[in-house]
Write a protein that binds this DNA or RNA. Structure first.
Lengths: 149, 149
DNA sequence: TTAAGATTGACACCTATTTTCTAAAGTGGT
DNA sequence: ACCACTTTAGAAAATAGGTGTCAATCTTAA
C-alpha cells in the first residue's frame, strides 16, 4: 500500500499534475483498502464530498494510476474493471470469488513463484505478472444452500 | 474436445433444439481448435458460409454452449469474452498472454490441484473452478525487442 | 403433417468506457 | 504572488460489447 506522499512523488516524477480530483480518488482507495472498487464505485463514493467530479475523470485517473502501477486493474468477470492498490511486497495475493454472492476474498501464496520459473524455462516466456482466481462458494453461501434443501 | 454427435446429445438431453445456426457455430470452434474466439470472431467466421446469421444469435448460442459446459467462457482482459471448447480431461490448462502481440499460449499443469486443496481447507471455500493466467512476453516478441536496441 | 413451443433476425436498447472540445486549473520561472 | 505554458477537467456525444423485444420461422414429438 503506497502512501499519499509516495504517490505524489511518483506522479511528479512523470510530470503528471497533482490535482484535487486525483487526490480525492486516491483517497477513496485509501479509505476502502479491503475493497475492489469499480469506476462507478469510485464515482459514487467520491460524489458525496465532491459532486463536481465527472465520471470521465474517474476513468482517466484510474487508467493513469494503473499505468503508474499504483493501482492494479482487475477483472472478476462481472463486466466491469475493478481496482485496488498494488501490493508491492514479495508475495502475490490471489482471489476467491463466490459464484453465489459475488464477494471476493483474498489469500496469499508464494507457491506460484516456483511454477513461474518452470513455465518460464519451458516456454521461453518472460513472465511479468500472473493472476490466479478461484471460483466457488464461500462458507456462508454453502450454509445457506444447505438450509434450502 | 467433445465431438459433434456428443454435443447434439447434450443439447437434446436438455431439450434444446439442434438448429443449423447452432451447428454452424459449433463447427466454427471445431475448425479453430487452437484459437480463442470472441463472439465477433465467430460472427465473422460464420458469415462467409451463412451470411444470414445474426450477431445476437451468436451471443445466444455462445451463452448456451457455455452453460452446457461445452464451451468455456474466458476473459483475457481485452474487453471481450472469448470461448474455447472445454477440455474435459483431468488436468487443467492455463494461459500465457503476451503483452506485446496479445497472442495466447497454453500450457498444462496439475500443480494447482494441491494448492486448491489447501485453500479449500484453510478458507472453507468450496472451489468449483480456477483460472491461472500469466502475462509477459513471448519468445518472438522478446527477440524483436532486443533487435530494437 | 401438424400443432406447440423454442429459436431466429432485425433492431432498439443498455451499460461500461472513450473521445472530443472548450474552459479552467497546476506548475516552474519571474 | 503573477504569467505563460501545458495539462487536466467536465459535459456530452460517441463507441463497443452485449442483451432484450417481438413477429416470423423453424424443430420436433405425436
Amino acid at each position: 500500500m503506497p502512501y499519499l506522499e509516495d504517490i505524489k512523488t511518483r506522479l511528479k516524477a512523470k510530470d503528471y499534475k497533482i490535482t484535487p480530483q486525483r487526490k480525492v480518488i486516491i483517497n477513496a482507495f485509501a479509505q476502502n483498502m479491503e475493497k475492489h472498487l469499480s469506476a462507478e464505485d469510485v464515482y459514487q463514493f467520491v460524489k458525496h464530498s465532491h459532486p463536481e467530479i465527472g465520471l470521465a475523470t474517474v476513468y482517466r485517473t484510474l487508467d493513469l494510476l494503473a499505468e503508474l502501477q499504483i493501482l492494479k486493474k482487475m477483472n472478476f468477470g462481472d463486466g466491469r474493471s475493478r481496482y485496488e492498490f498494488c501490493k508491492d511486497d514479495d508475495h502475490h495475493h490471489h482471489h476467491l470469488i463466490c459464484l453465489e454472492c459475488d464477494k471476493v476474498f483474498e489469500f496469499e501464496d508464494d507457491l506460484l513463484e516456483s511454477l513461474e520459473a518452470i513455465i518460464s524455462k519451458r516456454n521461453g516466456f518472460k513472465i511479468i505478472d500472473h493472476q490466479l482466481k478461484f471460483y466457488g462458494y464461500c462458507v456462508k453461501c454453502q450454509q445457506e444452500k444447505k438450509g434450502e434443501d
